[in-house]
């Protein structure tokens, strides 16, 4: 591997950008692909980026090794609520780095969230530092528009791979109107999963956390399957 290619790869990884190293086998000719559009191995590279898995592919009469470098997924949640208490350890077990944002200091206590990255601040203060990106899942769980709305807007603007919001269809219709007034496009608003979570009849906070986490994993691994 050329040192310049390795340096470019390390720079991409450090700034949480996805990249794939394409190595021709057995000769070892290599290139770094950050945007697969138009690449001769576009489909294979997209699949590697989606799964995050490296592997050998055969195409155009040759064999290639694709090394997928995909940033570790993160989850940012507004609301240090009961559901979040269950969701944070579950998401961590699945491999997400979790951060919880809630300016209400009665909710955001380390006693309620032991070992969790907890930010007792308003979203507009704390979200810039959290640097939401396309490898971040965002869930709005406070039920309070003053907290959830600005964070939802920021998550949509950042291209988070998953954006979900707690609340009934009626609540969500009102939320759509508010976010549209705040400048969110219809297309962006269609990306918000609400009611949040897969429909599994979840009843308890922990079950709702399971429904949310499963929906997040599906969005990560099968981004082409959009829920109707």
């Amino acid at each position: 591997m050329r040192l310049e290619l390795l340096a470019e790869l390390n720079a991409a990884r450090a700034s949480r950008r996805a990249a794939v190293v394409v190595t021709e086998l057995p000769g070892g000719a290599q290139r770094l692909v950050r945007d697969p559009a138009g690449d001769p191995l576009e489909a294979e590279i997209r699949a590697a980026l989606r799964s995050g898995r490296s592997g050998v592919v055969e195409a155009h009469g040759a064999r290639w090794f694709l090394t997928a470098h995909v940033p570790a997924p993160r989850m940012v949640v507004t609301g240090a609520v009961h559901i979040s208490q269950a969701l944070a350890p579950m998401a961590a077990a699945v491999g997400f780095a979790v951060a919880i944002v809630d300016p209400r200091t009665a909710f955001a206590t380390s006693e309620r969230f032991p070992g969790v990255d907890l930010r007792a601040e308003w979203p507009d203060v704390v979200l810039p530092g959290l640097a939401l990106d396309p490898f971040t899942a965002f869930a709005a769980l406070t039920h309070d528009p003053k907290i959830d709305d600005p964070a939802l807007k920021a998550a949509l603007d950042a291209g988070c791979f998953y954006v979900g919001a707690l609340g009934s269809r009626k609540t969500h219709a009102a939320r759509r109107d508010r976010l549209a007034a705040a400048g969110a496009s219809e297309e962006a608003l269609d990306r918000v999963r609400a009611p949040i979570g897969l429909s599994i009849g979840a009843a308890s906070p922990a079950e709702i956390a399971v429904a949310i986490l499963a929906e997040v994993v599906a969005a990560l691994r099968r981004p082409e399957e959009r829920r109707a």
Binding site: M1, L3, L6, A7, L9, N10, R13, G52, A68, H69, V70, P71, A72, P73, G95
Partner: peptide, 17 residues
């Protein structure tokens, strides 16, 4: 998530040295 993620930084560091 990438297995051995930091190893690529080590490789770069060693090569630069």
């Amino acid at each position: 998530m990438t297995p051995g993620a930091d190893l690529l930084s080590i490789a770069e560091e060693w090569a630069r040295a």
